[in-house]
Design a protein around this nucleic acid. Sequence first.
DNA 1: GATAAGACTCGTACGTCGTACGATTAAATT
DNA 2: AATTTAATCGTACGACGTACGAGTCTTATC
Lengths: 232, 232
Amino acid sequence: MAAKRSGAESNGSGRRGASPQSGQEPRSEPTLSLERIVATAVELLDAEGVDGLKMRRLADRLGAGAMSLYWHVGNKEEVFDLALDAVLEYRGPPEIVESRDWRGEIVHLLEDWRASMLRHPWSASLLPRRALGPNILIRLELLSKTLSGAGVTDADLNVAIWSLWNYVIGATITRANFDLSDDDRAAAQQRLTGLSQHYPTIERSRLLLDNDWDGAFRKGLDFLLDGLAPRQ
Amino acid sequence: MAAKRSGAESNGSGRRGASPQSGQEPRSEPTLSLERIVATAVELLDAEGVDGLKMRRLADRLGAGAMSLYWHVGNKEEVFDLALDAVLEYRGPPEIVESRDWRGEIVHLLEDWRASMLRHPWSASLLPRRALGPNILIRLELLSKTLSGAGVTDADLNVAIWSLWNYVIGATITRANFDLSDDDRAAAQQRLTGLSQHYPTIERSRLLLDNDWDGAFRKGLDFLLDGLAPRQ
DNA sequence: GATAAGACTCGTACGTCGTACGATTAAATT
DNA sequence: AATTTAATCGTACGACGTACGAGTCTTATC
């Protein structure tokens, strides 16, 4: 069986500089590593989108051969999974107020979640995969703990978590995909207006032109939270 | 410029049977058409999933050459878009009660939406695309009209629509992707339990084992609707 | 009926992609 | 010094999407 990397990170060795003589490798190619691969994959995804991530191109950016990646990573899918989770790291609420009200903490957690993904729009289209990386799990755990502390009963806990998760996921995916240029959006609305009289209501409310996404997200979230644990 | 199909359907001609002599073509290959292509694509997607849809395979199922598809369709992406929208056709609420309460109609519309997608799990992973096909638009229009009729002000209308849309999208994608076998689910929870003590709360609530998806969807939806237009 | 103009089909071929395989080299261990 | 392990990477193979252009069949025009 071919050797395969898996467990912990523990290397600090392994030279391979392109410039042959100098003892140190201050820049150039600092050796491959999972971290570097994932970080570069995120860069590449940011720059070129989901379809722009090719193993060869990723390797190029890393100054490595394409097949070298496969020692660190099982396949391309895994790169996607890792990149997605990497983008979802949570640094916690601002520490100024240690014990915030639960509602504030949840709102912060979820808004940050959405913001993290919107900073990397490709991440939204990667969501439809069964990736429960550590960072996602941490967020779920935190969410769960906060809700639990807020008095949500165990019976309702999972429902609450999934509802909030669903809402965030849906909002983020929608937002990421409808984040057209103004021209695109106008064109879409135009098409809607001209091409058919079948959609009078959404045409009138200019559904496709509305772009207060942040406000809408926040309002809907408040409604949901009201329902999940009514303000006392 | 190469001829390209676009507008209305108006053919009823064009023979091409494999068996050369018989005047009629009762079965075999009934000629290509956009409808047949889309319908077969849906079949193929149902059978093989998103990755299973290849142009050659689709053509095979249609008894046609691969390149023949490209007369009816611009590219593979378009097949995805069409298949997605095809699956989202809405037949309306049960007509027994003509004028239902608005809330019942909305719940029906959204539950049907979700159900339609879950009948074709691949459709969930196709959602992250900017596809506003006619069937989606019809659903949005209907949703909008119903909400409007229920007294939601114009100012809140778009927020309400997007909130509901987000919720449905998120719930469906989540559900479609976590619809593991019992074994898979148990394994995931197992991994969660063993692999780390970092997630005590979601481990305890057995988040990954919970599978009353339908109930959770309905409850969360009710919360949201309560918020959007409180029952008077 | 002859001819031209589309409408539609499809075989071949090209470029690109993921990655299997094995050779190669460098570091760690004995 | 010899062996083992960690890591890199060139080559090559089998998909896949689809450009291109040559075919065929249908319809319109004279």
